[in-house]
């Protein structure tokens, strides 16, 4: 077989496999979200005899007293607040961690690394939040997301600081610039690319977060989008069509984000983790 034929068949095989492995699950969710209840419960990938897009969507939205809308509100607010706070604290900490080195530096480095590895202690965290009157509050869950996202975020910012020449700082200092003015007027604007990366990657992880809201933000008023999936599943009956529609509704925002910020997401994932 000639070289170009070989390459072509490899390529064709890759595309066919990608359809089988990645598109079919997505298509499976899509067609079943469009079916009526008995049709969806057969779990096939046949095209629905009648398309129930709007009626399913409506039922998903109004279920449990408009739970989905509350969930979207909560998740969006949680994502925005966490990201704003996280960007601020990580940028400032990353700035200091890169520029300053003294006896404390290795200690700080150790704590940050530990945060990447150690799983959070669940019940003691609830205990701490409860003592601060923050358990089951938006403030509490935001602080949890920030604390758990901090190690990765600060490493991202610290690494990026390495590309900003110290001469810039020195020039500013000689001109009489203090630390705060240096950071907020000169450094922070230069951190825009890594901030964008951080915003995109964190919004994916926080919007999709299931575990932290489950533990630290319980209560029917506090529902987040990931928990709405359990609206249509119970021990005895599952409304498959609505369940799949719900999956679709909570997945679409991030897929749209992906279409626009594909490169940012990818660079964010590799930024903190590969040397060189």
């Amino acid at each position: 077989m000639s070289r170009s034929m070989k390459r072509l068949s490899l390529e064709a095989a890759a595309v066919i496999l990608s359809i089988l492995i990645f598109w079919i699950p997505l298509y499976f969710v899509l067609v079943n979200a469009l079916k009526d209840a008995p049709g969806a419960s057969e779990l096939t990938i046949s095209w629905p005899s009648t398309v129930h897009l709007w009626s399913n969507l409506k039922e998903v939205v109004i279920a449990n007293d408009y739970m989905l809308l509350r969930a979207f509100y909560n998740s969006t607010l949680l994502t925005i607040l966490s990201i704003v706070l996280m960007v601020m604290v990580c940028a400032m900490a990353g700035f200091i961690m890169h520029r300053r080195s003294d006896r404390l530096t290795p200690v700080i480095g150790f704590f940050v690394l530990a945060g990447l590895i150690i799983p959070p202690a669940i019940v003691p965290t609830i205990w701490v939040l409860d003592n601060l009157q923050l358990f089951k509050t938006m403030t509490g869950i935001v602080l949890v997301e920030v604390a758990l996202g901090f190690p990765f975020g600060v490493i991202l910012f610290r690494n990026f600081m390495g590309g900003i020449p110290r001469e810039i700082d020195e020039a500013a200092i000689i001109d009489g610039c203090g630390g705060f003015r240096l950071f907020f007027r000169i450094i922070l604007p230069l951190l825009k690319p890594v901030t964008a990366t951080m915003i995109v990657t964190s919004s994916v992880s926080i919007f999709n977060d299931f575990v932290n809201p489950l533990y630290f933000f319980p209560g029917s008023e506090n529902v987040t989008v990931q928990l709405t999936l359990y609206n249509f599943m119970s021990q005895y009956t599952t409304q498959y069509n609505l369940l799949f529609m719900n999956i679709l509704v909570i997945t679409v925002p991030l897929l749209i984000l992906f279409l626009f910020f594909n490169n940012k997401i990818v660079s964010g994932m590799t930024a903190g983790s590969v040397k060189g």
């Binding site: 400032m92 900490a93 202690a121 758990l148």
Partner: peptide
Amino acid sequence: RTYSYAFLLPAAVIYLIIFILPTIMS
């Protein structure tokens, strides 16, 4: 003075109280 640890303070407070303290208490 320029690279003051004050910059680190907000992160340190949140991280120590919400992550490190529960870990130690566990």
